[in-house]
Simulated assay, not measured.
Amino acid sequence: MTADYESVLLSEPITFLIGPDKKQFTMHKSVVANLSKSLHQLLNGDMEEAKKRCVSWDDTDEQTFIRFGQWAYTGGYKAEGPEVLLDSSQIATSAQDSLTVIKQEPTQPTAAIFQNSAQHCGRDWAVGSQGTPCVTCKTSIVSSYCSSCRCVRFTHCAKCRKRAVAAPSSPLQSMCTAFASNAEYAPPTTVRHVPRKNTESCEVYTEVFLSHAKLYVLADKYDIPVLRKLSLHSLYETLVHFTLYQDRIGDVVSLVRYSFENTIESDRLRSLLVGYCACFAKELSKGEEFQELMSECPDFAYGLVKELGRYLN
């Protein structure tokens, strides 16, 4: 560890010109060059970047590069926080002292409602029970649990489970369970990403989603496997625990549009988003933004129909 740290401090600086404004950032050469073969060749080969010790990334925005640098030096990065819009409960008018606030309800519980049953080892549930609050509505419930894997049978109350899906063996539940338990999006280390959970329709998650997606695109471009896997895992966990409101359909649309514009066919990011949107296709299809996306992005539309068809069959 000491030798590695010393080599970093002794390595020469590399200047990065980021975005259309070419804002200057500096990183140690050994840190960047060791991230992938592509970056090693860029900084140690015969290219102009290596000779001038200056790299220009016009198509990378400043915040994405900062996260890239944060990850390169620490092994982790901080995602963008949500933008909180002013809701009706905060608006004061001279005509009335108080307003009747109608709180927007989620279109569906999060995909995380299906995670527990998918993680269960398959053995019989214990006769005993454990007290636990419902993940969605926080109502106190008592649930049986597995004495082997300690998995609680129900993390949601009966009312929330009924809202999620009426038929226990429906194609919807099968699809959501498969998505919520997909090991393909496991973290590159033993540490799982714990996302911030949204609880109000006024919490805009567009930049939260894009902070992960943009880092994934950067990692994919320069073939950085660990960062690619970490950013995909972080986005996956964020989506699994994301509560979809009617007002927030546009957040998902922005994520899908950016991802399909910046990746190629059969990319893992595309597969992740198709899987998520399939679970909430009924709710998403009610939004005008999503309807426009379907007509503007035929690759996504085809992938979504194909994914839905797998479970309907």
Rank of each mutant, 00 (worst) to 15 (best):
K282I: 02
G287R: 02
Y77C: 06
Y5L: 14
P188S: 09
G309P: 05
C176D: 02
Y77H: 02
Y311M: 10
E83K: 15
L43Q: 11
R270L: 02
D267E: 01
K51V: 01
V256K: 05
R192C: 03
Y236W: 02
F260H: 00
R248E: 12
L293C: 07
G19I: 05
A183F: 09
V8D: 06
A33P: 06
L255N: 07
Q63K: 12
A178R: 13
K52Y: 05
R53M: 14
E265P: 01
A213L: 10
A186V: 00
E203P: 01
A281K: 11
F68A: 08
L172F: 12
Y236A: 03
K52I: 03
M294W: 03
D220P: 00
C121G: 06
Q104F: 01
E307G: 01
P298L: 02
K78Q: 14
Q246G: 03
T64M: 02
G250D: 10
R196L: 12
E237N: 00
S36Q: 11
A186S: 15
P13T: 09
I14P: 11
D223C: 10
G69C: 14
A95V: 07
S259Q: 04
G75V: 03
K162S: 10
V31T: 14
S88A: 14
F300R: 04
Q291V: 11
K282R: 13
Q108L: 14
Q70Y: 03
Y302M: 10
R161K: 13
I91A: 08
L269K: 00
A213N: 11
M1H: 13
